[in-house]
Design a binder for these strands. Sequence first.
DNA 1: GCCCCACCTGTTACACTATAACATAGCGAA
DNA 2: TTCGCTATGTTATAGTGTAACAGGTGGGGC
Lengths: 144, 144
Amino acid sequence: MLSEAERRCAERQVRLTPQRRRVLEVIADRHGAIGAYEIIARLGEGRSRPAPISVYRALDFLMAQGLVHRLASLNAFIACSGPDRAHGAQFLICRGCGVIGELNDASVEAAIGRAAAAAGFAVAAPLVEVTGLCRSCRTSDAPA
Amino acid sequence: MLSEAERRCAERQVRLTPQRRRVLEVIADRHGAIGAYEIIARLGEGRSRPAPISVYRALDFLMAQGLVHRLASLNAFIACSGPDRAHGAQFLICRGCGVIGELNDASVEAAIGRAAAAAGFAVAAPLVEVTGLCRSCRTSDAPA
DNA sequence: GCCCCACCTGTTACACTATAACATAGCGAA
DNA sequence: TTCGCTATGTTATAGTGTAACAGGTGGGGC
């Protein structure tokens, strides 16, 4: 995953600096969403804690490269599961266990494109965040 | 719109108190998105300015009744255009002029439902926020 | 009438999220 | 070397949202 990120940055002639790389590592370590200030805390464990702005700048870079997504409804960030193919951001957020699934369904994006076009709207960044229950939380909650 | 809201609250036996009603009025006055702290400022123009928590509580109520939606990507709120029929939240956000369009397209919701079901996920609250350019901003930007 | 309960609101303080403005440092090319 | 671009550091502050507890209001049952 990290090597894929490096390959991609080299290809685009952008710099995956040590600091940006550390931020990406912290996000990827967590298999799920992580808040900006928790990233800051994790980075500050050994060395000196970076200022918020430093981490936000790294996050801006990583998002621009499509390596990280922002979950607007959670104010949190998550590593992109399949950074190789371009895609909009579609997420399934389980309100039971908090697990995040990346959806990236072409038919959803197509339906959004059609509906938007019918309104004369040119889509730039479609954002889909679906709250609900994942398979395992659903079965355990079922008898309610 | 306000009378529709009153009707709906009466039907459900919930109270659209003066304070909640004022918050709804402020949101509806603005034909677009408005931030929580701007609502506070508007409410504080004549009388004494309410505490943030008061406004957030009113917003929670209005959202629970489906009279107001939250735009997660903007940290802002907007009056629901068609509160009579139940629907998820789907918005078109123009990054040119800032105008917000409510989409509420059944095929988008259906596509999300299908894709989520394929992942074993039970949808509770689908959120769609599409950034792009509205018809008029698109034509004026075109020659670029 | 009176009490009780449920709901709504007020008050104070605080936590969390994000950016502005300006200074410094590294790195490559002319 | 010097310039220009990008990345980072430093300090301060703006913006968004909640916690915890107290007080007030209104309606139903006795």
